[in-house]
């Protein structure tokens, strides 16, 4: 166990250093963007003299670059993100709204696709045969589809041709009232239905693509393990096929799945950027794109920072999980 703790500490320190360096890179990136940090307070009509003075102090905008960098680092580490000039609101306010939406979308999709992907991948790797071919081919197909294209097709199929789901947005009480007349507005069920129906199509798109990848990964991993001698031994010992499959093969095959899952957690914010754009789903990805288009560097920088932090955290978690699950790795 001591080695585990040491491993943890080492990875933790490495992670902090990486965040540090990435934040510097973000700062440099945004210095290069047209408009620069000055765009923040010269173009926001809701931010007048007192607000601007406050921003100037907060971000040290009239100081030399190394002072600005220091202030920027401090701000990022304390989650003090400033003010978005395109929205006219503090960035933290926007993030507080957008983050839960994206988490709902991506989190839900993640859970669904792993359940589906693992089940199907396990099944086809074990029962090699006709279904395997079909499953692999369709998984390959969906895996290589551009996400926005699946989004457009789903939009057409279920929003237009068979209008079950709404076409856009995160929540639209008028639409929900139309389609669920029996629910009382403002009630919990109503809001739940609203959110679920609006999130269904983007979630479906996400699941389709990622599940395909998980199926392929699971199948590959299972096959690798199946080739090991100890599986042969287990069968020879007389264990039932099911026991062998679940206890011996699958457990070992989960390793790459788990690490991929952990890494996917890192993409929970940034993974659905394009789909959020296609469905006009106002989550973190949508705000990131908007801020890039409008050159709102405060907002874009904040989201990018958060995404980077999460990715680094995800990597660390993945490494630790791998270390816990496979003692051979830990050194």
């Amino acid at each position: 166990m001591a080695s585990l703790r040491r491993y943890l500490i080492r990875r933790g320190i490495q992670g902090v250093i990486t965040i540090f360096v990435v934040t510097i890179i973000i700062f440099l990136l945004f210095q290069a963007l047209p408009g620069g940090p000055l765009a923040a307070y010269t173009q926001d009509p809701t931010c007048q003299a007192p607000c601007r003075a406050q921003l100037r102090i907060q971000f040290g905008l009239d100081q030399p670059w190394y002072v600005q960098l220091w202030i920027f680092l401090g701000n990022m580490f304390t989650f003090n993100f400033g003010r978005s000039f395109s929205e006219g609101r503090p960035v933290s306010e926007i993030l507080a709204i957008a983050l839960p939406r994206t988490l709902f979308l991506f989190g839900g999709a993640l859970i669904a696709e792993y359940l589906v992907g693992i089940a199907i991948g396990r099944f086809i790797a074990w029962h090699r045969g006709k279904t395997e071919g079909l499953a692999i081919v369709s998984s390959l197909f969906f895996y290589n589809m551009p996400s926005f294209w699946i989004g457009l097709i789903l939009l057409w199929a279920f929003g237009f041709a068979i209008p079950i789901f709404p076409l856009n947005g995160y929540s639209d009480p008028t639409w929900t009232a139309q389609h669920f007349p029996s629910l009382a507005r403002g009630s919990f069920l109503f809001q739940a239905a609203d959110i679920v129906m609006h999130g269904a199509l983007p979630m479906l798109a996400l699941v389709l693509i990622s599940a395909a990848g998980t199926i392929l990964l699971m199948q590959t991993s299972m096959l690798e393990v199946l080739g090991e001698d100890f599986i042969l031994t287990a069968r020879a010992k007389g264990l039932s096929a099911r026991k062998v499959r679940n206890r011996h093969v699958a457990r070992n095959a989960y390793l790459p799945i788990v690490t991929t899952l952990a890494i996917s957690l890192g993409f929970v914010i940034g993974g659905a950027i394009i789909l959020e754009q296609v469905f006009s789903y106002y989550g973190m990805g949508w705000y990131l794109l908007q801020s890039i288009f409008k050159q709102d560097n405060m907002l874009a920088g904040a989201i990018l920072y958060l995404i980077s932090v999460l990715v680094i955290l995800g990597n660390i978690v993945a490494d630790i999980l791998y270390g816990v699950l496979d003692p051979r790795v830990r050194l």
């Binding site: 990486t18 990435v22 890179i25 993409f267 940034g270 990131l288 990018l304 995404i307 980077s308």
Partner: peptide, 12 residues
């Protein structure tokens, strides 16, 4: 590796 691919591509 740690830089999130799509956002950085978009910004660049």
């Amino acid at each position: 590796l740690v830089l999130p691919f799509l956002p950085v591509v978009l910004i660049l």
